[in-house]
């Protein structure tokens, strides 16, 4: 490493440095720093209202940050508008899935490949997504609004994968799903990590997500309170008492 990148990211794919952000008249994030290294799966855990979703929306530039810096592979996102973030390889599965309810499953996936750079590889990636989620192939022409909750989540993840991202952001993938389905969704997340995707996942379902990811950050009232390898966090007294009810 003789020639440092203009802004060294220290080997991290995504790096947040002292990020503060919020909505009009309400600050949700205070001086948040974290990083995600290539090939890693990282979770941001914490209670409802801790600012987890805001964090992901900030990374996707749906919210402007008021202080700090976000770097993707060493490149600052400062001047990047929201609709160009995906071109840098960051794809987000939004909270509540947000499928286009009146489009078919395949059309939803097509929207994921909207980027001009992604279009030539549409067929190839569609095949890949269908191999990952055979259920979606069975329902490819079905209207997305009529899918079950778990199928919708698959479709939303598949849609994000269609852009061929380097980094996948998952916002509460287990929210609003039946316990059985939650299990299978986490199994899927595990598979996606195993496929070699770098994943940043935000979750309230702390016990489950810690079993899937490599490392995690604990976010409380907009501030990072703890971080470490998942096994370590799972074993820590603080987390066990406050979040796992043990």
């Amino acid at each position: 490493m003789s020639i440092p990148a203009p802004k060294s990211s220290g080997g991290a794919m995504l790096r947040l440095e002292g990020v503060s952000a919020g909505y009009a008249g309400f600050q949700a994030l205070f001086n948040v720093s974290l990083e995600v290294r290539p090939g890693e799966s990282v979770a941001v855990i914490g209670p409802n209202g801790a600012g987890k979703t805001t964090l992901l929306r900030t990374v996707s530039k749906l919210i402007e940050l008021s202080a700090g810096e976000i770097l993707m592979e060493g490149r600052s996102l400062h001047a990047v508008p929201a609709h160009e973030v995906i071109a840098l390889g960051i794809a987000q599965v939004p909270e509540g899935r947000r499928l286009f309810a009146r489009l078919s499953v395949e059309e939803n996936l097509k929207m994921g490949a909207f980027l001009p750079a992604a279009r030539p590889r549409y067929t190839e990636r569609l095949k890949f997504v269908y191999s990952l989620f055979p259920r979606l192939q069975e329902r490819s022409s079905q209207i997305a609004g009529t899918l079950s909750g778990g199928e919708q989540q698959m479709c939303a993840i598949g849609r994000a994968l269609m852009s061929g991202p380097k980094l996948l952001l998952l916002d509460e993938p287990s929210a609003g799903l039946a316990p059985v389905v939650v299990q299978s969704i986490f199994a899927l997340v595990k598979r996606i990590c195993a496929e070699g995707y770098t994943v940043l996942i935000v979750e309230q379902n702390i016990r489950q997500v810690l079993k899937v990811v490599d490392r995690a950050y604990l976010l409380e009232t907009g501030r990072i309170k703890m971080d470490g390898p998942s096994a370590e966090l799972l074993a820590s007294d603080e987390i066990r008492k406050a979040y796992l009810g043990i």
């Binding site: 996707s60 530039k61 749906l62 508008p81 929201a82 609709h83 160009e84 973030v85 995906i86 071109a87 794809a91 987000q92 939004p94 947000r98 286009f100 309810a101 009146r102 489009l103 059309e107 929207m111 994921g112 909207f114 980027l115 992604a118 849609r159 994000a160 852009s163």
Partner: peptide
């Protein structure tokens, strides 16, 4: 067709 259904997440599609 998609934008009329969910304007807010269109940037996430690029």
């Amino acid at each position: 067709r998609a934008i009329s259904q969910d304007r807010g997440i269109m940037p996430l599609m690029g």
